[in-house]
Write a protein that binds this DNA or RNA. Structure first.
Length: 218
DNA sequence: AGTGCGATTGACT
DNA sequence: GTCAATCGCACTA
């Protein structure tokens, strides 16, 4: 890994060294709303075999403790147990008989809460993403717009449920060196219980968000 | 053991 | 804009 300069005859061709570093867990906000906002603009790095797929998070939703819309609302079950892990772990579930959803667990160990990743700006490995989605020559936004689509593009399924997103592995979070995004708010999408709070967060001007850019700055 | 229902998507009017 | 597909899971009994 280090010391490459002391071996001038060997080129650094280890792709691993060029990958964005995981975000240390201690630097993640400890509250769910804070994490949902913090994750906007961060990178999601997926290793699929030899391929590396990277997307920039442009849309999130917060599912707080004691939130009637949260899967954790009625306590821990086999399905939602990853929501109760320490912040920065993957909670992946299957819904509507067709789609996987990726969440980042939030809060302290034993507290059930998480942040749903709803859309990415695809940055790297778009060809593999297209293949994963079964599309020929898609517009980039078609790859990762919507929680089910982005999970399919990144080949995310229940095998990644519980994965630590703060360590190198099949999937992790990284920071992006870009100016802080302008964040907008709206109600969360597709829920009936506790639908009023503005707990969906998205990058104001991103064309990669899953739904219209209505609603308040914040 | 049976039932109801989704943190969606893709097809269609 | 509307709507059906589809199935794992939580809940009731």
């Amino acid at each position: 890994m280090e010391g490459g300069l002391t071996v001038p005859t060997r080129k650094i061709r280890n792709a691993e060294a060029a990958l964005p570093a995981p975000i240390p867990r201690r630097t993640l906000p400890t509250d769910t709303i804070g994490l949902a906002r913090f994750l906007l603009g961060c990178l999601l790095v997926r290793r699929q075999g030899r391929a590396v797929l990277i997307g920039r998070i442009v849309e999130t939703e917060a599912y707080r403790p004691d939130d009637a819309a949260s899967h954790a609302f009625r306590g821990q079950t086999p399905r939602n147990k990853a929501m109760f892990l320490h912040r920065g772990h993957a909670y992946v579930y299957f819904i509507y008989g067709s789609s996987f959803m990726l969440n980042v667990s939030s809060e302290a160990e034993g507290i059930g809460a998480g942040v749903l990743i709803r859309a990415l700006e695809p940055l790297k490995g778009l060809d593999v993403m297209a293949r994963n989605r079964g599309l020929e020559a898609p517009a980039p936004a078609a790859l990762t717009r919507g929680p089910g689509r982005l999970a399919q593009a990144l080949a995310i399924d229940r095998r990644l449920d519980g994965a630590d997103l703060c360590r190198p592995g099949p999937l992790w979070l990284a920071r992006d060196d870009a100016p802080p995004p302008v964040i907008a708010l709206s109600p969360r999408i597709g829920i009936k219980k506790n639908a009023a709070p503005l707990w969906r967060f998205f990058i104001q001007d991103s064309p990669f968000v899953s739904r219209g850019r209505f609603f308040l700055p914040g």
